[in-house]
Write a protein that binds this DNA or RNA. Structure first.
Length: 432
RNA sequence: GCCCUGGUAGUAUAGUCCGGCCUAGUAUGUUCGGCUGUCACCCGAAAGAUCCCGGGUCCAAAUCCCGGCCAGGGCGCCA
């Protein structure tokens, strides 16, 4: 086997920095070398950090030289240093080249990377070695694990909805169709029904799942495949789950602020925590605010993109809720108000200027559901299996879903969602 | 699907308006040479570009025109 001898006692770089003077082996990638004839420096990286290897005995330096992204294993000792900027450096006894990298690299992955997003995405596996990209996904990973931990600790059950579904009749966004033996099937556009079926029995559930939308959008905030972080909760109305959302969101943000200072610094990102509770703005208030500012908008209209931006400026909050939407703007399963069936218990959460979450209280009464489906111009017969789920003692329930990539965007300060998805799927991109 | 802008060595860009001096400039990477402590090391040299594709105008096209593909931005669409 090639170069595996060191692997059994290999030590991570961050750990090696602490074990001064001990003989040990580190392994990783060459970031760059500085060759000063009689002394050479190798800056190398592993998943935990970077270190400078100082080579005074030139016989140790590989005859064939070292290039960027070569994989090496170095045996030697860490020592404190007054000369090296990092304060520590590694003095080798042996340098093994584990695997050479082809040169030059097809994408620039230095701290000062100048490659365009498209080039970086084409060479995503290499781009993952760039400090900025690593920072984005370290943060994303942390958001995800904190979300899971918080909900689990608060009694929520993680559920596993299917991604292949039979029905395209939920209306709205186009679905991706696929052959399923002798039937037609679709990629799920939402775990909606499955969340509800679980919530009316398990009470408090959550899931992290991919969803697909076959819309031909081509914008910096849309992908055809995204991951959603969802909850669904029984004996809850919209206000109850809004409270859960603001709590878990601020908890996640505080966690990033506390545990990812290096990553935020790499991204030149100052995270400002929104204050609790988030301001609640009703749809009517939003429309009136815009009208006062001279915008052409009437009750029932959706906000145009420029109006959305204007509204955010006028509200001037890091994060806020937009609630009590007209029924026409929201899904048929949104619970209408008792005193005004034109307004539903639905909300969006705007954070850092983009919509990162939306939710509703759902209709749990079969008769009302049929009525609302008809009112939307849809045929209740196509939804019978969905409606039937609420015929056997379904408690009132509500839920929401956060878009993982969009949340990552706001937290990391990126303005193109593709940067915040490891392998984005948009209208053109299917590879890698 | 619409509007605007762009596509030039591995990467990122200059040049394009106003066609010829472009035999396509620069940075970085790569290769080679030099240099005991650098830290984006430095210094010197070399290689590396059918100027996105197809057509057109012209004595002459990276440059102008048309079509296509792709990218970025704006919008639409997104229960």
């Amino acid at each position: 086997m090639h170069g595996v001898s060191f692997m059994f006692d290999r030590v991570y770089i961050e750990e090696a920095k602490k074990r001064l003077g001990k003989q040990l082996t580190i392994a990783g990638w060459v970031i760059r070398t500085r060759d000063l004839a009689k002394i050479k420096f190798i800056v190398m990286r592993d998943m935990t950090g970077e270190i400078q290897v100082t080579v005074k005995n030139l016989d140790l330096f590989p005859k064939e030289g070292l290039g960027r992204e070569d994989v090496i294993a170095v045996t030697g000792k860490t020592a404190q240093s007054k000369i090296a900027n990092a304060g520590v450096e590694f003095f080798p006894d042996r340098i093994e080249v584990v695997n050479k990298s082809r040169q030059p690299l097809p994408v620039d992955i230095a701290e000062t990377s100048q490659s365009e997003l498209e080039t970086r995405l084409n060479w995503r596996f290499l781009d993952f070695r760039a400090p900025q990209t690593r920072a984005i996904f370290t943060i994303q990973n942390r958001l995800l694990s904190t979300f899971r931990r918080w909900l689990t600790d608060n009694g929520y059950v993680e559920i596993q909805p299917p991604c292949i579904i039979a029905s395209a009749s939920e209306g709205g966004a186009d679905l991706f169709e696929l052959p399923y033996f002798e039937k037609k099937a679709f990629l799920a556009q939402s775990p909606q029904l499955y969340k509800q079926m679980c919530a009316i029995s398990f009470e408090k559930v959550f899931t992290v799942t991919p969803i697909w939308r076959a819309e031909k959008f081509n914008t910096p905030t849309h992908l055809n495949e995204v991951r959603q972080m969802d909850i669904e909760q029984a004996f809850a109305d919209d206000e109850a789950v809004m409270k859960v959302l603001e709590k878990v969101l601020v908890h996640m943000l505080r966690d990033i602020k506390d545990h990812c200072p290096e990553e935020l610094k790499t991204l030149s990102r100052e995270l400002v925590l929104p204050e609790l509770p988030f301001r609640r703005i009703t749809y009517i208030e939003a429309v009136e605010t815009l009208q006062k500012a001279g915008e052409q908008i009437n009750w029932g209209d959706d906000f145009t993109k420029p109006q959305e931006k204007k509204l955010m400026e006028l509200v001037g909050q890091q994060a806020f809720f937009l609630k009590d939407w007209p029924a026409a703007q929201k899904a048929f399963y949104s619970m209408p108000y008792d005193d005004n069936s034109e307004v539903v218990h639905a909300f969006d959460c705007i954070y850092g200027g983009i919509e990162i979450c939306s939710g509703t209280q759902r209709i749990h009464i079969p008769e009302l559901l049929r009525e609302r489906i008809s009112k939307k111009g849809l045929n209740p017969e196509n939804f019978e299996s969905y409606i039937e789920a609420f015929a056997y003692g379904a408690p009132p329930h509500a839920g929401w879903s956060i878009g993982l990539e969009r949340l990552t965007m706001t937290v990391t300060g990126k303005d193109n969602i593709r940067e915040c998805c490891m392998f984005p799927r948009d209208r053109e991109r299917l590879i890698p």
